[in-house]
Design a protein around this nucleic acid. Structure first.
Lengths: 164, 164
DNA sequence: TGACGGTGGTTTAACCTTCAACTAGCAGCG
DNA sequence: CGCTGCTAGTTGAAGGTTAAACCACCGTCA
């Protein structure tokens, strides 16, 4: 790129290293726990829950598979599988897309909505208890800024998502 | 617990919600990418890499399985599998523990160390480019504080790890 | 010594995610 | 119209993770 010289590695300083590791470990424990709580209380995994949330926020409680995939940043394949499970559980139905013959819309069912409404309480309680209530509002906003920056850095250059 | 009244759900406010979602999406993208870069450059997954790092930092480049598991916050079972893969790749060897007949120590091999030294450059460069260099130092420290708090909240009460 | 509960670690199967290959419909162009 | 290339979505297999059962060894207590 910039002249053919190999880039010297700049290691992380002590603070950066500590923050990074704290993030790794904390995230692992947190996600693990939130997933487990959701499963035990509602037989719903965190990714499944996230899909239900996006659907509940979409107009008409329905959304194209690709939109769903982008909104949770999962691969299309993964969303196909996740939706298949939700469909088997009766929480979502598939619907052919009117405007595009290739398209498929996922629709939240009545039962899906009811389940989500209950599960959301479990989930939010967990997020509060395990994260939000433990930290400064300012620090939490910093987390938001940081990961918005990360997302921007990674989304950019990805075709079809530059604008967003 | 506190009198039998059902806890009212306190939803997240707008800012909290935004931060939480930014975290979810950003983390997904970031971990995904770091894992991919490590795999493409060194045929090493992020969890595998993490294990190698812990081993390289341990006295004598060796560590008990349980210690390894705790330090990365993965289940023992998961570490068994991960180490098995690393062993198959020739990066780690297993060794019976002298002081405890049940114990097993994982030892970093010469080849493992060499691979790690190269992979670390890839990894750190990624962490910098995709995270550290994009954000304020202060914000990064806030991330550290937040996830330290999360970890404390989750580790505590877990038998054998209260003190830590 | 022997019985007992607890810990360290492995195993197996089920489950979820990823990857690559694939079908089908859209759009542009001759 | 047919050809080409691209996008939407699915499929099935391979790889990684989780969960539960399991074995072996420790420590204690009789």
């Amino acid at each position: 790129m910039s002249g053919g010289t190999t880039q010297e590695t700049v290691w992380l300083d002590h603070d950066q290293q500590r923050s990074w590791r704290a993030f790794l470990v904390g995230t692992t424990l947190l996600m693990d726990r939130l997933d487990r709580e959701l499963r035990e209380a509602h037989q719903l995994s965190l990714p499944e829950y996230e899909i239900l949330v996006r659907l509940s926020e979409a107009a008409g409680h329905r959304s194209r598979m690709a939109v769903l995939a982008d909104s949770v940043s999962h691969s299309r394949s993964r969303v196909t599988h996740t939706v298949a499970r939700l469909e088997a559980a009766g929480y979502v139905a598939r619907d052919a897309c009117r405007s595009d013959g290739r398209g498929v819309e996922a629709v939240l069912t009545e039962q899906g909505l009811r389940t989500l409404e209950v599960a959301a309480r479990t989930h939010v309680a967990g997020v509060r208890r395990l994260l939000v209530d433990l930290v400064d509002d300012a620090d939490l906003r910093a987390v938001g800024r940081v990961f918005d920056a990360v997302t921007d850095g990674l989304i950019e250059g990805r075709p079809g998502l530059d604008i967003r």
